[in-house]
Amino acid sequence: MKTCECCGNEYDKCIDVTIDGETYTFDCFECAIQILAPTCPHCDCRIIGHGVEVDGTIYCCGHCSRQQGAEGIVDNADRAEEEKVPL
C-alpha cells in the first residue's frame, strides 16, 4: 500500500507521477491536480488544460490574462462569440 501525498489516504491502486526526476504518489487524479497543477494568478483556479502563457506566467484563459494586462491574447471561446460560431 502506498500513501497519497495530498490527502494521506492509503490505497493499493495509487498512481505515481514523475516530473523532472521527482516522483509523487496520489490515490486519484483530483489529488494530483491539487498538488501539481499551476494556479491562475488572476482567479486562483487550478489550470488543468493548456492555459495561456504570457511572459512566463500561465493563466487559465485569455480573459484572465487580459485582466492582468496582457494584450493580443485571443481565447477560442472569445473568438467563437465574436464570429458567432457555435461551440
Score class of each variant (00 low, 15 high):
87 L>K: 14
48 I>N: 06
5 E>I: 10
79 R>L: 15
52 V>N: 00
28 C>Y: 14
36 L>Q: 04
36 L>C: 03
34 Q>C: 05
54 V>P: 00
73 I>A: 03
65 S>Q: 06
14 C>W: 06
72 G>R: 02
45 C>W: 12
84 K>S: 14
6 C>Q: 13
58 I>V: 08
30 E>F: 14
4 C>F: 05
28 C>W: 06
51 G>F: 05
1 M>F: 12
43 C>L: 03
40 C>T: 02
61 C>H: 05
72 G>V: 01
12 D>R: 02
66 R>E: 15
13 K>E: 10
13 K>F: 13
16 D>R: 08
5 E>G: 15
6 C>V: 10
6 C>T: 03
35 I>K: 11
84 K>R: 14
30 E>C: 05
46 R>W: 08
31 C>H: 09
2 K>M: 12
3 T>V: 13
6 C>H: 12
65 S>V: 04
9 N>C: 13
43 C>T: 05
60 C>P: 08
51 G>L: 00
20 D>N: 11
61 C>W: 03
19 I>V: 13
49 G>I: 05
14 C>T: 09
68 Q>C: 09
84 K>G: 14
18 T>W: 08
65 S>I: 10
61 C>M: 07
77 A>W: 13
77 A>M: 10
79 R>G: 07
87 L>N: 14
84 K>F: 01
30 E>I: 12
81 E>T: 05
77 A>D: 05
24 Y>R: 11
52 V>K: 01
48 I>H: 11
15 I>P: 07
20 D>A: 14
70 A>G: 01
30 E>P: 05
62 G>R: 05
42 H>L: 05
37 A>K: 06
53 E>I: 14
73 I>F: 04
21 G>V: 03
69 G>T: 09
51 G>N: 02
6 C>G: 06
55 D>L: 00
12 D>C: 08
61 C>D: 11
23 T>M: 12
37 A>Q: 05
60 C>H: 07
